[in-house]
Structures are given as structure tokens and as C-alpha cells.
Amino acid sequence: MHWRIAPQIQARRMIDRKPLYLMTPALAWLTAFMVAPCLMILALAFFQRGIYGGIDYTFTLENIALVFDPLYANIFLKSAFIAGLSATIAVVIGYAAAFAITAAPAKRQAMLLFFAVLPFWSNYLVRTYAWIVMLNREGLIAGAAQWLGYDGELPKMLYTETAVVIGLVYNYLPFVILACYAPLSRLNPEIAEASRDLGGNGWTTFRRVILPMTVPGIATGFVFVFVLSIGNFVTPALLGGGQFQMIGNLVYAQFLTANDWPFGAALSMFLIAIMMGLLTLQTYASERASGARREE
């Protein structure tokens, strides 16, 4: 009702009747160094590549078409596969971990969550590097196998797709745990008890009641890992050893080695498109889940 929210707004507006002045510097900064560059990239995707690199300002759809060229489309599919696999594994592990944390005594949950997130705060490169040490031929896993008496030939671990997936899961797992913990911890424990009371066993209760109500967390976790993985170029570069390319590496190459900026721009447009599509899906998933909750 209008007159009841009025006092709060009045109080805020007393500070400054023109809040726009406060926002102007930051918005100007974002416009200059984010909006403008991104719009430029958008435009760039529709220009031709110059003969000696650089840009020829002639309109073309070639770059967009090139994205669908089998060679590049395959890289897209491959990246999507790796990202999807990593996101799936991260969500399964992360959800289990979050569930286990919510099952812990209330006073210990904050501490467990803190330590689950702690690695996320450290340097990404360093965390990725740690897996080089683990997976190296002279690395820790090899060393451990040897120490256990295994002296046969170990399969190659570093510089494989598996290594890339491990690296991505490792780096983004803490976020997934957080994302899944949020809806799990908000669940009213009496809901699970009510389901049991009505005759559902533990598994049924989980599948029919808890899982549907925590879909938003799962969706957030999945989208986050997928989006960050598909555009990632650090992990494939370090743990994949340049053996195979993902979109991130392709974009990187267009700008820093192949010098085909318009094509690089077109590739990043698709990256953004995929991201926005997924975010929309995620919003939809959360809205549906919260709708379901209201109906109950």
C-alpha cells in the first residue's frame, strides 16, 4: 500500500534527492570500459578480417557462418561436452557435500561450510598448478602408486581431457557446495519429517520432496560451472597441455596469435549467447521451484 512504504522511501531520499549524482561516476566507468567495449565486439563480429590482420570495415556474415563450420562447431561441441561433464560431476559431488553439511549438527555447519569454501578464495592458477603436481609423471599420484608397490606403466594422467575435467571440477566445486547449501539449509526440517510421517522412506522423501525443492541451487551451481568452464582457457592450457582446444583457447588464439579479431569477436558473441540462455533457464528453474513451494 502506497502510504505505508512512503516513510522508508522518504528517509532514503532525504540523504540525496538526486541519487543519480551518486551513481554517475560508476555508471560512466562501466559504460566506458564495459558497455562500449562489449558493443564494439558485437560490431566487430560483422566486419571482415583485413588481409594483413587488422579489420576491414566491410559488413559480412562470414564470421558468424564460420562458427558453424564443422571444424569450429566440433570445438564448440567438445567444449560443451567438457563443460557439461565438469558441471555434472561438480553438482553431484557438491550437492552430496552440501547435503552432508546440512545433516551435521547446527553449530558445526558454519565451520564446515567455511572450510569448504576456503580453497575458492585462493589463486585460480595456483589451484590449477597443484593438479600438475598431483598428476605429473613424477607427481604425487605416481609416487604414491610406486610407494604402494605398483611398478607397471601408469596411464598418462596430465595433459588429458580427464585432467582438464578434474581441474575444472576442483576449481568450481566450492561454489557448487555454497549454491546447493543455501536452499538445503533453508528447508524446514519438519518437511522431511512430515514426509516420513506420511510413510515415505528416506530415499522417497529425498527424491520426491527435498530434491525438487532444492532445484534452484542445483541449477545455479550447474550454470555457473558450465559457463565458466566453456569459456575457460587457463585450465585447458595448463592441464590439457595444449593437446586440444576449447572455445576459450580458440578466442585467445584469434586475438593473440592468429590475429583474426572479427572471428574471435564472433566466437565470444556465441559464448555470451550461451551464457545468457543458460541464465534464463536457471531463472526459470528457480521460479518454477519457488512456485511449487508456494503451492505446497
Partner: peptide
């Protein structure tokens, strides 16, 4: 009751409206 204007009147006496 809420919406009767009592709080608005009070805030008017205080000078906020």
C-alpha cells in the same frame, strides 16, 4: 487501523511529511 492515516499525521507533526 493500518491505512487510517494516523502514522502520516504523526510524521507530519514531526516534520517528515
Amino acid at each position: 487501523a493500518s491505512g487510517s492515516g494516523k502514522t502520516t499525521l504523526l510524521r507530519m507533526l514531526a516534520g517528515f511529511e
